[in-house]
């Protein structure tokens, strides 16, 4: 582990830095399902008795910040490198979720073009007291070669 990365991990991992609320809109959930090719009415028809968001809808819930406000970030533009969803319970229209974000992991990969630094931000989503999902976003910064 590079020293600078270890320092970031020591100072910032697992500390909550953002909390937001989401009012789950049925039309938005249904349109997401339709645009993505879902065919089951429980994902596309708000009038279906079991209507719920497709599990991947969790990835569309974006917090106020991706990274801690005071954390130094590498030069360059952060790119969305991937998304992970852990689904635990249905997301229902009309409910309000609370999303609490923390840095879940920081790691690097080194390729021919230099070092890439990955930040994994995890937003834990709660419907009342029930933990309904985790949404991870991987943001990558590609460092400019020195010299």
């Amino acid at each position: 582990m590079d020293d600078d990365i270890q320092k970031l991990r020591d100072e910032y991992l697992n500390l909550e830095f953002d909390e937001v609320s989401f009012d789950l809109d049925g039309e938005r959930m249904a349109m997401y399902g339709q645009c993505c090719g879902e065919t089951d009415p429980k994902f596309t028809d708000v009038k279906n008795e079991d209507f719920q968001a497709p599990p991947t809808f969790v990835s569309t819930l974006v917090g106020g910040r991706h990274l801690p406000k005071d954390m130094p970030v590498p030069d360059g533009v952060g790119m969305d490198a991937g998304k992970y969803v852990e689904w635990m319970a249905p997301l229902r229209a009309g409910h309000t979720l609370i999303g609490k974000s923390h840095l879940h992991d920081i790691y690097t990969k080194t390729g021919r073009s230099g070092r890439m630094i990955f930040f994994v931000t995890r937003m834990e989503l709660f419907d009342g007291d029930e933990h309904v999902a985790n949404a991870d976003t991987r943001t990558v910064f590609r460092e400019r070669p020195s010299g």
Binding site: C36, E38, D40, P55, T56, Y84, V85
Partner: peptide, 22 residues
């Protein structure tokens, strides 16, 4: 990510996707 989830639901309508990493 949604396209991939929809593919799984079409194949297994009673399946519950508990995790998906892209």
């Amino acid at each position: 990510q949604g396209f991939l989830g929809a593919m799984i639901h079409r194949w297994a309508p009673k399946a519950v996707i508990t995790a998906i990493d892209t």
